[in-house]
Design a protein around this nucleic acid. Structure first.
Lengths: 308, 308
DNA sequence: GATCAATATAACCTTGAGTTATGAAGCTCG
DNA sequence: CGAGCTTCATAACTCAAGGTTATATTGATC
């Protein structure tokens, strides 16, 4: 026979509170209400739940056993309520975030780490991708936030774009690189070293080509191409190779004293770094919280970078 | 916010069954009913529980988390239902049973052991007492079954009495007692040995006096008095003392080859052994089951005793 | 036995869960 | 890509039952 879980909850409250009136108060209901509910339950199961004519209301064996189950139901219910509250306030949930590999690994990952320290109940599902595919994932709602270098004008009305950093690339090399010691680096200096190229379909690769075109370099020795940031880093620190990287990435790496940038001016890309979300859809509270966190962190980072 | 536990149950069923229709079937409800319940729950918590427009219905993060709580509620409910069924069929519960010490320890305890082997979920609350007090405990419902030697005529209409053994006392001694070897024991033989007397307020003590009066014995050496059956047994087996015991107790002890009875005829008491319960009150199913078990076991025992 | 507190009952209203019938929207597959 | 099937949502209605306040009843207590 199926029992109404609410009846078991009421029973548990009465047993716990030690009386019908107190139990009703505990549940925030009126005394007659719980009285009748108990009667109904007793009628259904055909067994008494409380000893008759005992004023400090005393449960029967069965009453006590069922009250324990009721307690478990109450616990589960309370837990569920907490879950709901957490979700509504964005203190729990999941955020699906994606971005371009180099930038994700170089800058965003540490921001995510900070975020998770603050919000252990929010799960971050991180993935990598390039602008076109990420935008389509935003569209079909398999992604909540994309962090991309993009031309603001290229973002259609469907999306919402919040810039977090201006686009700025530099030529990077290992700390201790021969060129890094120089006061000024000339064009012909950099052509002497071999270069690392980012994956061919990445925006960074286009930036590299544009940059080199911009400063009049036609031919380069490409010693390494593709790979993740950590692969690039390993090659960089183990050789005198050069590459183009977002300044923010190099800035973060300077903290670990692994990379630095050459004192040579190259043109800034017209792409800016920002978060893309769907415009009309009401974002989940946890996504909103994540977004706000990222914006705050990058505001700080931007100021640090400007001072540097 | 308080959630309706039934909603969480429904959610759990849907997630488990993998669809709204299947979930409804699992719960034995109609599909529109659960559909509306889910909508209501979603409205209450203000968050979607299922991803929109995905046909193999897929729960959201929150939906999945709440479904887990729902599963716990379902489990508790099922457990509660099982409890109720067991109680109603007398397969679980508690029976408060009491009786006179010697008889309880000598005969009933082994019957209780057998009963518990068959019904591990029924708790036996055993206690000791003499007829008057036990009957009053039956009256005020602090006792379910009393097992007593009593004159059937003394049992008032308030109670129900089921005889399980006819009253029959014997003079008992240890196995290997000098008198036990004799074909026939005469009156003067038994007065030579010291005697063990049961507690002064027990029916057995009155039986002892009546018996000795009946066979014309006036004076006896009382070497030991009071104590439980095990105390009496220890004294008996370690000495040549005699005492009066119910034959059924001696019969059980014969199995362990500790006690035996003397071949001397003594008058049977007019008390008979039986179970006393309250007449009008509907007994708990477990008490009924226990009562039936005791009656069956004693029917067997009675036949064994008669053959002996 | 009078008094007080706790529980049960009564009368009423409202919610919501149950139903069947039916509409709308995805998926599947030729 | 549209027909057809399946699955979910909506509508309209009934009714069980939980919520309320007011009041009666019953144990406990002194």
């Amino acid at each position: 026979m199926k029992l109404d879980p609410r009846h078991l909850e009421i029973l548990a409250a009465i047993v716990e509170a030690g009386g019908l009136t107190e139990g009703a108060a505990l549940l925030g209901k009126s005394q007659p209400s719980v009285s009748r509910s108990v009667s109904l339950l007793e009628d259904r199961i055909g067994e008494p739940l409380f000893l008759p004519t005992r004023r400090p209301l005393q449960p029967t064996e069965l009453g006590l056993a069922l009250a324990q189950e009721g307690q478990r139901i109450l616990d589960a219910g309370r837990h569920a309520s907490r879950l709901v509250n957490d979700y509504r306030q964005g203190l729990a949930g999941a955020v699906r975030v994606a971005g371009t590999p180099i930038f994700m690994d170089g800058v965003i990952s540490s921001v995510i780490a900070e975020f998770q320290a603050e919000h252990p109940n929010i799960r971050i599902d991180q993935s990598y991708g390039y602008p076109a595919e990420l935008l389509s994932k935003i569209s079909n709602e398999t992604l909540d936030v994309a962090i991309l270098p993009i031309r603001p004008a290229d973002v259609s009305e469907e999306y919402e774009f919040r810039q977090i950093l201006p686009g700025r690339n530099v030529i990077a090399c290992r700390v201790g690189h021969p060129l890094a010691r120089k006061k000024e680096v000339r064009l012909e200096d950099i052509t002497e070293y071999s270069w690392i190229a980012p994956p061919a379909n990445s925006p960074l690769f286009r930036d590299l080509r544009n940059t080199l075109d911009g400063i009049g370099v036609r031919e380069l020795k490409i010693s390494f191409t593709g790979g993740s940031l950590s692969a690039v880093l390993n090659v960089m620190t183990g050789s005198d190779s050069l590459t183009v990287l977002p300044f923010s990435v190099v800035f973060m790496m300077q903290r670990q004293n692994t990379l630095t940038s050459l004192p040579i001016k190259i043109g800034d890309p017209d792409r800016h770094l920002g978060c893309v979300t769907l415009r009309d859809r009401t974002m989940s509270a946890s996504s909103g919280r994540f977004l706000g966190f990222v914006e705050r962190k990058f505001e700080l980072l931007d100021r640090l970078i400007c001072k540097a």
